[in-house]
Each structure stands twice: as structure tokens, then as C-alpha cells.
Write a protein that binds this DNA or RNA. Structure first.
Lengths: 159, 159
DNA sequence: TCGATCGTTTAGAATATTGTAAACGAATCG
DNA sequence: CGATTCGTTTACAATATTCTAAACGATCGA
């Protein structure tokens, strides 16, 4: 009956890959996270490569990216030179360390761009300039609303 | 002083492209939406192609995708065979028609996959099966939480 | 110190995405 | 009706992404 378990696990891994792909990411991100998420124990690079059927080089690159997002963690076993990866199980930490910082960064860069474009037309007084100013102000209102949504304590709690 | 206005607009268009790119999307989506968002009047395919410096074929494909997401709208001028596009200015509508449906679809497909994997190991009773069941149940809890977050009236209002 | 193991880097192959020109069908107008 | 305009489709070129094998440096143990 091991086959059914393997199938169930593998389908989840594939689904994780497809989900990542649908967000424009390398499917390996989702596959690797899911494999670790469903694994009893942490896995080393070679195990990850073997089970996902890709080279160790890919695993090396993708795993460091996943780690930088806080989605997986590096752990050591004493007396073993290798290191192992385990999935971050606390979704809150994953969101707070990985997702939110990147969104906040984008929102910040958007604010900078809007301000910069506004300053470029500071002295202009044409109809076109007025329209552009209006639209940029509107965009800034949208942007600020999103920002406050993220900071909202109620929303934070729900995450 | 038309140059400064053009610069301000073009920088916003480029920023829109970069934002889309950072989400793994074709930059043209962001560029095109931003161009329409900052435009006084709706623009036709040829105008979009000319102003963004790409072929009409690309515009044709990308515009229909944007339209299907509810990000832009098709409008007609009487006595003109061409049709024109304008940006959807109501961010709420954009979220409700474009973003949320796609998220809901993903959450739904995730639920299906979890259920399917659970049913595959229905009869299994090994330690591995138990662990997998636990993890899948945990994943389902996460998923359901996200779903309820989207449905939460407080959150809906904030959007 | 030598050989083995481990993780990383790199050069380039394989693949997927994106963009174009040209062909096309449909609608419009003289 | 032709001729023209408009949007779409298609075949293919350009580009970007993803993956691998091989080389590499570091570390450990014999």
C-alpha cells in the first residue's frame, strides 16, 4: 500500500508546482516546499534532488531562494557534515518574513515613483499636467489604502 | 514643457511594467494598463501599439487578457469602426472581477487536491499514512483560513 | 597529506516566453 | 462590386528562463 501514499504525496507536490507556476514562479519552488512540508524529517540536497528528479544544482539555487523567503529552514544533525532543510510550518512567519516584506517594498517603490513623477510636472500648468496630477493623486490614494490594509491590526490578526 | 509631462507619464508606464514583471507577468500588462490609466481618452489598438512601441499583434493579445481580468474596458465611438480601450478606474471592481475570482479558483483547486490525496490514503494505516493525513489536514486548515479571510466582511470593506 | 564528500558556481543546452511580420477574414465605403 | 481599414491569427525569430554536467573550493577523515 506504499504506492497510494506515494501517489497522494506526489500529487500534492505537483499541485504545489502548478500553483507556483500560475504565479509566474519556477514550479520547483512549490514542489520543493511541498515535499518538505509533507516529509517526516528534514532532507538534504541530494535527497531533494533525487526525489524531485532534478539536479543538485537546481536544488542548491532554489533552496537558498526559498530560505531567503523564510519558507524553509536549514537544520543540522550532529556528526553530519551535510545540512538539511525543513519546511516552515508557521504560515504566519512565512507571511511576515517572506510575503509582506516584498509587498511593502513594492508599495514603497510605487510611492517613490508617484512622487517623482509628480515633482517632474511640478511647474507645469497645462490641461495635460492637471489631468496627470489628478490621476497620480488618485493612484497614491489607492496605494496608501493598500498599505493601510496591510498595517491594519484586524487584518494582521486574521493572517 | 511637454517633455516633462511625457517623462513623468513614461516613467509611470515603465514602473507599471516592472511591477508586473516582478510578479512574473508580461510587463506589457502593466505598461498598457498604466498608459490607459493616465490617458485622458480611450485609445485604440494602433494608438496603444504606437505609444508603447510594440506591434499591434502584441497589443491585440494582451488587451484581451487585460479585458478578461476586468482591468480595462472596450468602448465605442459612434461612426468609428475601431473600438477603444479605457482603464477600469474602480479598483474595487478590478479586485472583485479580476483578482478575487482567480484566487478563489486556486483555493478551490487546492481543496480538491487535498481531498483527493486524503481519499487516496483512506484505507492506509501505516505511520507514514498517519503523518501524511495530519499534514494534509493542517494544509486544509490553512487553506480554509485564507478562504474565510477573503470572505470576511471587514476585509471586503477595506478593499 | 591524500582522497572522498558536500555545496556552489558556471558554461552552455534545452525549453518556454514574448514579439513580429505577414496572411487572413470581416466589415465599411466609394 | 473592388479597395481599404481593422482586429485577429499564425508561423517564426528573438529573448529569457530553467536545467544540467562539469569544474571548483572547502571540509572532513583516514
Amino acid at each position: 500500500m506504499g504506492t497510494n501514499i506515494d501517489n497522494a504525496r506526489w500529487e500534492m507536490i505537483e499541485a504545489g508546482g502548478r500553483t507556483c507556476q500560475s504565479f509566474g514562479l519556477n514550479p520547483l519552488f512549490g514542489q520543493m516546499y511541498m515535499l518538505l512540508y509533507l516529509s517526516r524529517e528534514p532532507l538534504c540536497l541530494d535527497q531533494l534532488a533525487e526525489r524531485l528528479g532534478v539536479s543538485k544544482a537546481s536544488i542548491s539555487i532554489v533552496s537558498r531562494q526559498l530560505e531567503s523567503w523564510g519558507a524553509i529552514r536549514r537544520v543540522w544533525k550532529r556528526g553530519d557534515r551535510r545540512y538539511f532543510f525543513e519546511a516552515e510550518m508557521e504560515i504566519r512567519r512565512l507571511i511576515e518574513r517572506g510575503l509582506l516584506p516584498s509587498i511593502i517594498k513594492k508599495l514603497d517603490s510605487a510611492r517613490h515613483q508617484i512622487e517623482r513623477s509628480l515633482s517632474l510636472i511640478d511647474e507645469a500648468d497645462s490641461e495635460d499636467a492637471k489631468l496627470l496630477r489628478d490621476r497620480l493623486a488618485d493612484a497614491e490614494r489607492r496605494r496608501a489604502r493598500l498599505e493601510s490594509l496591510i498595517d491594519n491590526p484586524i487584518v494582521r490578526k486574521l493572517l
